[in-house]
Every structure is written in structure tokens, then in C-alpha cells.
């Protein structure tokens, strides 16, 4: 279970998150949408403390990560993250990108780690790319390796930070298809995206943000037919 309690974040004088409180239910998919600069990525990055909140608590499995920094790596192990720019380890093959944390964090031996990695790379359709280095992969393939790398850790939640923003439309579809097919038991998915149609298709809930605040957390169907906030109505109207 993941919850944020009164989380605020400022960079100098700029407030990027204003008193955000939200609870993420297990096994649900959340899409965070809103215009640029609304604080979507910052909210996501506060969940695994890639950004440390200025005030407030981030509670994952009953541990307040902001207070108990010693637990941070133990908890991060359980939260997968996928970045806009893939962030693959450039000097490692696709296979080793996935086995690295399995060996260093999960302390698996070479053979165990390889088995797990092959399984997840196969799941994202890259069984033929095991020995390729990131620079030999297309953008879509890179992002799929990144997804496999995160999934292999058997996380309780996956955070996607605009996973398709650096991809062309064709590759975007290939990555979205992979994300759509994730049905790992017990996993929560939290996705920051500009792909409104995709959000509508995969998300159970829409988190709508505007000017550093969450304006509403609404069931997807309801959000698209009858959003609660005026700002969301204009936002959706501008989409069409």
C-alpha cells in the first residue's frame, strides 16, 4: 500500500507540489494527467523519493520513507520505475541491464539472474535482443528493456514517467501495448502520460493535476464523461 500525506515540494521559491494527499490501492492502475508544469512527474518521483518532499510523508508498506531513510533502498527495490529517456546502462547488454540489480540487490547468482531476466525480456518480446547493447536498440526496444528491468525485481508497484514521450508514434504503440498487457498480480501501476486515449483505456482512476495540486481522483469512466472540476472540463474540451 502506497500513500502520500500532505506532500509538498518546492525548488527554491517555486512550489511544484502543494499539499498532496492520496492513497493508491493495490492492483489498480492510475493515470496522472494534466497540462505541462502541473507537477505530475514530481508527484510520481516523490513516491520512491527520487525527489525528496519538502514536507509531508510518503508511506509505503507502513514505512515513512521521508523519516526513515535507512529503509529507502529496501523499499525502492519494491517500486519499479520507467523513465522518459529509458536510462539504460549504456555499457551493458539488454540481458545485463536486467540482471544487474538482480545480482547486486536481490543477491542472485549469475544463473538465477539470467533465468529471471530472460523470462521478463521474453515477456516484453525481446528474447532475440538479449546480447544487444542499448545503442543497438530502437527507442521502443530500449523502453521495453527498461520495463523488463523494473518488472524483474517483482515490484509491488510500477511508476511510469511519461514512458512514450521520447518515442515516435509507431514505437509509442509498441510500448503502450506492453504496458497494457502487464497484469502482474498485486501490482499497482502509476503512469504519468500525455496519451489521453491510452489513459482512458488502461487506467482505473484518473488523477487530474493542475498548478501543483491534485484537483480530482476520479474513476476513469466518470472522469471522461463527467469530470468534477471545471479545469478538467476545459482540459478535456481542448483535447478533442
Amino acid at each position: 500500500m502506497i500513500s502520500l500525506l500532505n506532500v509538498s515540494k518546492s525548488f527554491g521559491d517555486t512550489v511544484v507540489l502543494k499539499n498532496v494527499t492520496i492513497e493508491f490501492e493495490p492492483e489498480k492502475t492510475y493515470a496522472i494527467i494534466g497540462s505541462s508544469g502541473a507537477g505530475k512527474s514530481t508527484l510520481l518521483r516523490c513516491i520512491n523519493l527520487m525527489e525528496v518532499p519538502t514536507t509531508g510523508s510518503v508511506i509505503i508498506d507502513s514505512v515513512d520513507l521521508v523519516k526513515d531513510r535507512k529503509q529507502l533502498n529496501r523499499v525502492r527495490e519494491k517500486i519499479g520505475m520507467v523513465f522518459q529517456n529509458f536510462n539504460l546502462f549504456a555499457h551493458m547488454s539488454a540481458l545485463n541491464n536486467v540482471t544487474f540489480a538482480l545480482r547486486k540487490v536481490k543477491k542472485m547468482n549469475e544463473a538465477e539472474a539470467k533465468d529471471v531476466a530472460v523470462k521478463y525480456l521474453t515477456e516484453v518480446g525481446l528474447q532475440h535482443r538479449l546480447d544487444n547493447y542499448p545503442h543497438q536498440l530502437s527507442g521502443g526496444e530500449k523502453q521495453r528493456v527498461a520495463i523488463a528491468r523494473a518488472l524483474a525485481m517483482k515490484p509491488i508497484a510500477m511508476l511510469f514517467d511519461e514512458p512514450t514521450s521520447a518515442l515516435d508514434p509507431e514505437m509509442t504503440q509498441e510500448v503502450l501495448k506492453v504496458i497494457k498487457n502487464l497484469n502482474h498480480i498485486g501490482m499497482t501501476n502509476i503512469i504519468v502520460t500525455h496519451e489521453i486515449k491510452f489513459a482512458q483505456e488502461v487506467a482505473d482512476y484518473i488523477i487530474f493535476m493542475n498548478q501543483a495540486e491534485i484537483l480530482e481522483v476520479t474513476e476513469t469512466k466518470t472522469f471522461f464523461s463527467a469530470p468534477k472540476s471545471e479545469r478538467a472540463k476545459t482540459f478535456l474540451a481542448n483535447m478533442i
Binding site: 527520487m50 533502498n73 519499479g80 546502462f89 544487474f100 540489480a101
Partner: peptide, 9 residues
């Protein structure tokens, strides 16, 4: 950052 997110020391 990606390594940190995986919980690597």
C-alpha cells in the same frame, strides 16, 4: 537515477 530507483547501493 535508474540504479537508485532499483535500490542499488
Amino acid at each position: 537515477e535508474a540504479a537508485h530507483a532499483l535500490g542499488v547501493e
